[in-house]
Computed example of a mutant assay.
Amino acid sequence: MQFSRHLPRLLAACVLASSLACAWRAEATVIRFTTSLGSYNVRLFPTLMPVTVDNMLDYVNADRYNGTFVHRSVPGFVIQGGGFAYNATTNSAPPIQLYPAINDEPGGGVAGPSNLRGTIAMAKSGPNTVTSQWFINLGNNSSLDSPARPDGGFSAFGRVLGNGMTVVDAIAALTPYDLDGTSSSLFDAVPLRSATGALNDVLVHVTDVSVLNIPAGDFNIDGKVDAADLAVLKADFGSTTKAEADANGNGRVDGADFLIWQRTFGQNFGAPAAAAVAAVPEPAAATLAFLAVIGCSLARRRK
């Protein structure tokens, strides 16, 4: 579809269906993961997956992901985090404080995108057990979609933006190690930046996950809404696999996103930064598991 041919029709449709713009959240739905290997941005899909997105933002805005680490890496499949923080003093990996589990939302092409490369979804142990742990798909894992699976299937609720997958791939390229030395599978595939040294120095830490304070129509994430953002929208118009210009988070770049760009044109928030949120004190978490084999004695995980 050529954007210019259909622009008058899109404008008319947007005026008639202005309620679509109400689905756009006042705050940005782009979050930034800052890790030991660099940062990457993820656009969330609140229109498609409102419960899952709100759950993720609850953890983000309470800073509960800050100080966690990537605790699972399966090459070609996923990297996973959001569950544990490393305590160097006690050499333990206490779980982060959890909110109550949420109910599953339909995904996998039913009401949202499939688990394709670059999408983010939440880990769980069975139906309606989603809490804090997230994973990013390294490959096209549509086998995870089906709600008929014993675990109820996994719903993708966002997508990594731009060249962010280069950071994700760099994490995935690290060798995974078995750190618990037991039959437990919690820490049997932890990616490390080196096979030697203090564990705290070689884990892939997630130092910060924050909502970016950017205008809703800022598609190139430079803090302002201008013609450059319209160019992004025109290039990706109709796409369900590129999320840069998906302003309302419905999984597709369409006329509603153009209306949001139009309504926010000229806004300039300055260089993108994390949105300010009220600090939430963290109660101490009980130790869930101890990481037993450290440093030179790390056992390389068999693939």
Rank of each mutant, 00 (worst) to 15 (best):
G126Y: 02
D188A: 12
S239G: 10
S142M: 00
A170V: 01
M122I: 11
D151C: 07
T196Q: 09
G118T: 06
V160E: 06
T182K: 11
V206P: 09
L138D: 04
F237R: 11
L203R: 05
F219I: 00
S239Q: 13
N200W: 02
F187E: 00
T166H: 05
V206N: 06
V232Q: 10
K234T: 15
D229A: 11
V204F: 06
G118M: 03
Y177Q: 06
F237S: 08
P127R: 09
L144Y: 08
G158S: 11
L233I: 09
S155A: 15
V160H: 06
L116D: 13
N115A: 02
S143W: 10
T196W: 00
T131F: 01
G109Y: 08
V110K: 09
G164N: 04
D201Y: 05
L203W: 01
L174C: 11
N137E: 06
V130N: 15
P176D: 10
V160G: 05
H205G: 07
G112R: 05
G109C: 05
T207Q: 09
A198Y: 01
N115R: 00
A231E: 11
L179W: 01
L186D: 14
V209G: 02
S114E: 09
R117M: 09
T131M: 04
S114V: 02
R117P: 07
L212W: 08
G217R: 05
S142N: 11
N128D: 15
S146N: 13
N220Q: 06
K234S: 13
N213I: 00
I120A: 04
G139H: 03
L186Q: 11
A235I: 02
F135K: 04
I120P: 08
L186W: 11
T240N: 12
S146H: 01
A170W: 03
A121E: 05
A235E: 13
A170L: 01
N140W: 01
R117A: 13
A170T: 08
G238P: 14
R159Q: 15
A170K: 09
A148D: 13
S155T: 15
P176N: 10
N141R: 09
D188R: 14
S143G: 12
A156S: 14
D208T: 08
L203K: 07
Q133S: 10
S210N: 13
D218G: 07
S155Y: 10
G162R: 07
N128Q: 02
S239M: 07
L138R: 07
N200Q: 14
V190P: 10
D178F: 05
F187V: 03
L138P: 03
P176K: 09
F135H: 14
A228S: 15
D201N: 15
S183W: 13
L174M: 06
S125M: 07
P191L: 08
T166K: 06
S185D: 12
D208Y: 10
L199T: 14
G217F: 06
V206E: 03
V160N: 06
Y177S: 07
S114T: 12
I120C: 08
L179D: 04
A189R: 15
M165C: 01
V202Y: 00
T175A: 13
S155N: 07
A148E: 12
N140E: 03
M165T: 08
L161M: 08
F135E: 04
T166R: 10
W134T: 02
N163K: 04
R149Y: 01
I120Q: 08
S184L: 06
V232I: 15
A198S: 09
N128G: 00
L144F: 12
Q133F: 08
